[in-house]
Computed example of a mutant assay.
Amino acid sequence: MTKRQEEIIKDNLRSYKANFDFIKIEDADYGGGFYVFTSEERAKNGDWTQYCYNIDYLNGWLYGCVQAANGIMKRKQEV
Rank of each mutant, 00 (worst) to 15 (best):
E78Q: 15
E7P: 09
D11H: 06
N45P: 03
S15P: 01
A28H: 13
R14E: 13
R75A: 14
Q67D: 11
D27I: 04
G71E: 03
Q77M: 14
A69Q: 11
G31M: 06
Y16H: 10
C52I: 01
G46V: 06
Y51R: 11
E41P: 04
R42I: 00
T49M: 15
K10N: 06
I8D: 05
S15K: 14
Y53W: 09
A28L: 10
Q67C: 11
G71H: 09
F34G: 07
Q67I: 02
K3A: 08
G71Q: 14
E26Q: 11
N54S: 05
I55H: 01
D47S: 15
T2A: 13
M1V: 01
T49K: 09
D27L: 15
W61S: 14
F20Q: 11
A18G: 02
G33H: 04
Y63I: 06
S15R: 13
K76I: 08
I55V: 10
D11T: 10
Y51T: 04
F22P: 14
I55A: 07
V36P: 06
V66D: 04
K3V: 01
G33R: 10
A68T: 03
R75L: 12
W61N: 08
N70E: 13
Y53K: 12
F22I: 13
D21R: 08
R75Q: 12
D29E: 11
N70K: 15
G46S: 10
G46L: 06
V66Q: 11
R14C: 09
N12K: 10
T2G: 15
W61C: 13
E7K: 08
F20L: 09
F22L: 11
N59E: 11
E40R: 15
V66G: 13
V79E: 07
Y53H: 04
L13C: 02
Q77H: 12
G71V: 01
G33F: 01
F20A: 05
I9T: 02
A68I: 02
G31S: 05
N19K: 11
S15M: 11
K24I: 05
N19G: 05
R4D: 00
K74F: 05
G64C: 09
N54W: 01
R75I: 05
D11A: 08
K24W: 08
D29A: 12
G60S: 13
D47R: 15
D11W: 01
G33M: 06
